[in-house]
Design a protein around this nucleic acid. Sequence first.
DNA 1: GCCAACGTTGGC
DNA 2: GCCAACGTTGGC
Length: 151
Amino acid sequence: MRYWLMKSEPSDVSIDDLAALPAQTVAWYGIRNYQARNFMRDQMRVGDKVLFYHSSCAEPGIAGLAEVSRLAYPDETQFDQANKYFDPKATRETPRWFNVDVRLVKKTRLMPLKEIRAAPVLASMRILQKGNRLSITPVDPREYEFIVSQL
DNA sequence: GCCAACGTTGGC
DNA sequence: GCCAACGTTGGC
């Protein structure tokens, strides 16, 4: 089993939005970065643990725990001309983008980015590295356990 | 809104 | 295959 940190803009899908969705589950649509896509398509398995992270907002940080509830499948938004994630180069026969489903495990207190940054155990997390923009990153089991212990 | 960092695109 | 230009991310 693997551990991940997945960023979501709360103005798009917040932890409360996730809690309000049917089955508290969301398709992680709209990923248009190959490295992040490959993590979902090639490495994520049902049951993998997810840190749900709020980004691009007033209080960035970890907002809850979630898990992968469905293996990667083609991202519907790439086929929808009206969608901002539409990709003219993608076809049903050869989809380019994939997403998993993510289900809420529980909403937690918000663990702010500042607090993550202040913890020596977490110093090597991808999210803290300069210039990191990847919206999906692997998390070390030790890092995951530490974070859960702080929530 | 600013801006550093990075990924992607496309002309050559 | 190089690399300049451009677009995006995301904290501040």
